[in-house]
Amino acid sequence: MKRQIPLLIVIILGFIFVIHVFVPHKASADFYDWYQTWIKAISPFMVLLGIMSLFMVHSTKIKRKVPNWQYSVITLASLIGTGAVGFIWGTQAGTPFMWLFKNVQMPMGATMFSLLAFYIASAAYKAFRARSAEATVLLIAAIIVMLGQVPIGIKISKLIPETSNWILNVPNLAAKRGIAMGVGLGMTATSLKILLGIERTYMGGGK
């Protein structure tokens, strides 16, 4: 029973939502609105779950003094501190919370994001080796596109930006669409497996 009831809920609701896609009727639209309010009601509890998990993992680490437990102290203190600041002074513009957001979170996020430039360079360096015929094509295409995006490309030859555009618009788009189609089918298959109860890992365990 412990397995069947959730499975039944999944199957019934799953099919209702499939039907919802094909039925534009008012009744169907109203049902969807109703479901949306449920989602809104459920999500706050989930936040609590996440915070509890974070708390438990890190408090255990501190208690057991596992290596690097100091980081956990910082994590927990930041969690409590930011939360408290938000609760005490609110989250409007000008509050300490927003100050933290602007001066701590945003620059840190931007820093992480800008690391991408470095990582792309090193990844490109390592990956682009003319190991085989295909790899050579990839290598040449990459160089053309890179040159096509910067002023120097046109200086070398007018053909470079044009070829770069062609590569982006034709082979690149074709491959993208091919993958997208496979993904679409894969998604449909996975959803169908869940709907039919073939795939149940998401409930824990395979059987």
């Binding site: 490109a124 360096y125 290598l139 990459a142 910067v150 120097i152």
Partner: peptide
């Protein structure tokens, strides 16, 4: 870009 190309 040039740097990366040189590296490659």
């Amino acid at each position: 870009h040039l740097m990366i190309i040189v590296f490659i």
